[in-house]
Design a protein around this nucleic acid. Structure first.
Lengths: 235, 235
DNA sequence: TATAAACATTGATATATATCAGCAAATTTA
DNA sequence: TAAATTTGCTGATATATATCAATGTTTATA
């Protein structure tokens, strides 16, 4: 069979950002020119579950706008990871390196199939020089991040195991899957990295919540049965 | 004795910001006009030890630029506080509310006599509309904050008591007092709110460090004797 | 100055949580 | 399909850390 070069795998998805209906709030009020500059310097990429998107300490060359799917954002360590946040549609990764460090502060991995736009940091820096609206959106986004991390810090430092796990489950139901019934895309180990406890304790506590009918647990399928009991525990 | 009205207590310190040699990096490249606007909308104030500067959940009406002295920045709670950072000269408080929330995210209290400039949030918002340099400095400052909080989160979630206390002592020596010999301006209770441990454990560990000759401890006077041992512990 | 209040210290004890070891179940690889 | 690897589960045990109670010490108050 003669060799036919497959052009499609060499061609980046270069849909014009101007016509994208799925823009991050940061990009909502960019001018046509600015969006054109972004179009020239972005690629849309798909990641499969478990693929690494950002590596902590690596050069912060791009930012990533999640269009579809979930990612775990975490601090890496030789012995143990700490998951800071599960990010979904609309989450922008990499802004925390802007005007601060050449490296990423954390790692990010797809926990299900993900579609995102990778945008060159250079063009972001360029737009920051000219568009105040963009800067203010970045500030707003960073402050949202700070609030989330402070909440996490508070949770881990002030709450016991059951409160931390209850809070994580409510976060899945309310913010991530937006339903009282969901299928966890992550392992018990990941849950332990979110709640900062031993995996065995995640297992034991999930079992306990199940026995007390706070949740209905079937492997990775979880249904919240007693929302207010979990809410109470998380205090 | 006839009553003489003391005008001085009614007159704010309105030194012109243009001639201030002590400007935050955020304010370094403002135009003369912008500095004039700030001059009109700022007051220099002194706080005594233990006075509250910012109250968590209060309206974020001003930002505070610390010119002199140390403050503790902390999350409040009915049972227990968590000190996020000890801030000194050059620290700006309140930026984390910009474009995000009308309220302060944390409380701040003077731990020694403090001189600061209180600047109206309105004029800060005004300058953010016109000066990109200012915006970028704010972004830089926020990202520094994020990195610090992440370090704290990591410390509290991954390290044991001795590591957490060692890290706190090194922070005092390296970043806050910038000397291996210093007099702590805070109580053992505050140290426990920094390291997230029981006050009794702070006392016991300080004693242990003293016995092992890692530090020389005399009440609130601390001298670092074995820097590398503490550094090792903090890992 | 006397008294009260807050802070610091110490040892004993209780509790929360991690670790270990062994096994079952599920998933991947050969 | 079988073997190997990972993931989930369970109970027993060890450990880190908090709590409690009592006492000394400093600082604030009457």
């Amino acid at each position: 069979m003669p060799f036919h070069f497959n052009y499609s795998i060499m061609t980046n998805n270069q849909a014009n950002c101007l016509f994208c209906n799925n823009k991050s709030v940061c990009f909502k009020e960019l001018t046509g020119d600015e969006l054109a500059r972004i179009t020239e310097n972005k690629v849309e990429i798909s990641y499969k579950k478990d693929e690494t998107i950002i590596k902590q300490h690596g050069f912060a060359s791009n930012i990533y706008f999640i269009k579809k799917g979930l990612v775990k954002i975490y601090l890496e360590n030789t012995d143990r990871n700490l998951i800071i946040e599960i990010g979904g549609e609309g989450k922008v990764l990499g802004l925390t390196s802007l005007n601060h460090t050449k490296h990423y502060m954390f790692s990010a991995t797809a926990i299900e199939n993900v579609v995102l736009c990778e945008i060159s940091m250079d063009v972001i820096n360029e737009i920051m020089q000219t568009n105040q609206y963009f800067n203010r959106q970045v500030i707003s986004t960073l402050n949202t991040t700070i609030e989330k991390i402070l909440k996490k810090l508070y949770c881990i430092s002030h709450k016991h195991l059951n409160g931390r796990l209850a809070e994580a489950l409510l976060c899945f139901a309310d913010d991530i899957y937006k339903s009282h019934k969901f299928t966890l895309g992550i392992s018990r180990k990941d849950l332990s990295d979110i709640t900062n406890m031993a995996t065995e304790n995640v297992v034991r506590l999930l079992k306990e919540f199940n026995e007390k009918k706070y949740i209905k647990l079937t492997g990775k399928n979880i249904e919240i049965l007693n929302y207010s009991a979990l809410k109470q525990l998380s205090r």
